[in-house]
Write a protein that binds this DNA or RNA. Sequence first.
DNA 1: AAAAAAT
Length: 478
Amino acid sequence: MKFADLGLSPELLQAVESAGYTEPTPIQAEAIPQVQMMRDLIAIAQTGTGKTASFVLPMIDILANGRRRARMPRSLILEPTRELAMQVSENFEKYGKNHDLKMALLIGGVQMGDQVKALDEGVDVLIATPGRLMDLFERGKIMLNGCDLLVIDEADRMLDMGFIPDIEFICEKLPTPRQTLLFSATMPPPIKKLADKFLDNPKRIEVARAASANVNIAQFKVEISAKKKLDALKYLLQVDNVQTAMIFANRKTTVRDLNKSLRKAGFRSGEIHGDMDQANRIAELDLFKSGEVNILVCSDVAARGLDIKGVSHVFNYDTPWHPDDYVHRIGRTGRAGAKGRAITLVSPADAEAMENVEKLTQMKVPPFDWASVSPEAAEEAAPKGRSSRRRSEEREEAPREEAREERPKRERRPRREEREEQEEVVEAAPRREREPRRERVETSAREDRRPRYADNDPPTKPGEWNGPMPGFLGVGFN
DNA sequence: AAAAAAT
C-alpha cells in the first residue's frame, strides 16, 4: 500500500512525498478512505501511530473544494492541550503547502488579537483547545453553523481533563448533517456515550490495542530509595548512551527542582509544565527540538501525543499515578520505527503505581541491567574522589550508615529535607570535574540524536538480571 | 494524591 493508492490529490501527494513519506501507517490506510467517503469515524489509536495525518490529509482535499467565509470556519479540530494543537497546525502547514487553505490556531495563553483577525478574514480550519474556543464563541467572534467537519482528538484525554461538557456544548452549536471524526486511545463509557450522541452511524476502526506498548521501546525499572533518585538519574544519564531524553515527574514542583539540579550538575536540560506561560513553554520545546537542550524535564503536559524526533530515552523520575500515562510517557521514544529506552525510577512510594502499570501492560518491567554499562562509562560517571573498588567495599559494609551521615538533621519536614539533600549532593562534586562530560554530550547530540544501540538492543523481556547497582546507589530500596 | 485548560 502506497499513499499514491489512496486517491489523494497530486498536490497533496507531492507534499507528503517531500515530507519523506511513501507508505501510509495502518491507521492512515484504514481511516483516509473512510474520511474521503464523508463517513463518521471512531478511531481507537494510540498516539505515534500516524493518527494526525490520518485526518489532516483527507481534510486538506475535502477543504480544497469550497470557499471560506468571514467568521464562519469550515472545519474544527479539538485538541486537549495547547502543544498538541500547535503540532496539528504544523501538520496542516506541512501537508497543505500546495493548497490555498487558511487556518486559525485558537489556544489560550497567547494574545487573542491575531486569532480574532484570522477569524474575521475567514478560515478553512480551526484548530483549538476548548477553553479559548468557548471564550471566543461567547464573545461572538466565531459562528459555528458553517462548520460541517469536526475532529475530536484524544477524546479520552479530554474526558480526564473535564472537557466533555464543553465538547457537548460545541457539538450542539455545529450544523447537522456534518462529518464527525473521533479519535481516542481508549473507549471509557462517557466517550462511548458522547459518540452515540454526536456521531452518525460511525465506522469503527482500531489499530493497536489500548495500552499495548511499542516493541521498539526497551523498558527497565530501577528500584531505589526516594532520596537516591537524583543520583541514580544523573548516573544513568551518563552511562546509558543518552542522546536526547524526556524526564517525567508527577509534580510541577519536582519538574522545576529537578531541572535546576540537572543544570547545576552541568547537564543541558530544560523544563516544561503547565505553570509556565505559553511563550516559555514554546521556547523550551523549541530549544529541545533544535537540540540546544538535550534533556527535557516534563510534567504530564508533555506525556501524550508530542512528536519529537530522535528522543532516545524516556525516564520516569516518578511512576505516574495513572498507569495509562506510563504508556503515553514512554511513547515519546521509539517513534517512527526507531529504538528507544524507557527507564523508570521506582521508590517504595512508587511501588504500587508500578504494580498497576505492570497489570495494565501485562508485562513485568525488568530491572535495569547494570552489567550492560561499560566500565569506562561507569568510571567516568561515578562520583569522584573514590576508587570503584573502594565503593564496592562500602556497599558491602555500610551503605545505610553512609546514607544516614549525609542526611541533614531536620526530621519533621521530610519533603524539604529531601530537597536540601539533593542540593548538597550537587554541590559536593567539584566544578572542574563536570566540564568534560558537558562537551561530550554536546558533540554527540549534534552528530546524531538517535540511540546507537539500535541493532543489538534486545526487546524488553522479563529480565533475569538481579545483580547489584553501583555501590554509591546501594541495592534495591535501601 | 497530579496535571491540564479561559482570564
